[in-house]
């Protein structure tokens, strides 16, 4: 057990836990932010995607001891009122089916658009390839990313 000071969604949290505990479980079980999802535990499905210093990372494979004083943003902190352009686009396009993977999809899309405001079709697919959707909403995800690029 050790103590970690994490910066999540602009708030500070002190977490007492095993240094190897992945950020995912610190978020979900210790801090109580369950918007970040558990899908595979091995960084293959993208359901657990959060931002660390603006980069999309897989929180299931990131030990809390490696977070340091990095700024973590989860789906709960992406916007104040759920009105980030990506969230708005996801609503407009009515993307989800079961919805379980979508917070990870949204976090990947938001990180992409932050770095590349006008991605090509290939760039969108490539950036979103790490996020699995068993329901098969990929066509709508691409459309929503494109829409988000036009919203500000």
């Amino acid at each position: 057990m050790a103590s970690f000071n994490l910066k999540i969604n602009k708030k500070k949290y002190t977490v007492e836990a095993d240094p190897n505990m992945p950020l995912l479980w610190a978020l979900r079980d210790v801090i109580g932010l369950t918007g970040t999802k558990f899908g595979c535990g091995i960084a293959q499905c993208g359901a657990c995607t959060v931002h660390l210093n603006g980069d999309a990372v897989r929180s299931c494979s990131l030990p809390i001891s490696a977070v340091g004083d990095g700024e973590v943003v989860t789906i709960e902190g992406l916007s104040e009122n759920g009105d980030h352009p990506v969230q708005k686009a996801w609503e407009e396009v009515d993307v989800m089916q079961c919805g379980y993977c979508q917070s990870g999809q949204i976090m990947s899309a938001a990180a992409l658009l932050e770095k590349n405001p006008n991605p090509s079709d290939e760039e969108i697919s490539s950036a979103m390839n790490g996020n699995i959707c068993r329901c098969g909403t990929y066509v709508r995800i691409r459309e929503a990313v494109k829409k988000a690029a036009t919203l500000k």
Partner: peptide, 22 residues
């Protein structure tokens, strides 16, 4: 055409799923 009633909750990460129960 009618949008999914849970869109907002899902896209803002509110607890809805079984794994989110506490």
């Amino acid at each position: 055409p009618t949008k999914n009633v849970d869109n907002k909750k899902v896209y803002t990460g509110q607890p809805l799923f079984g794994l989110d129960i506490k």
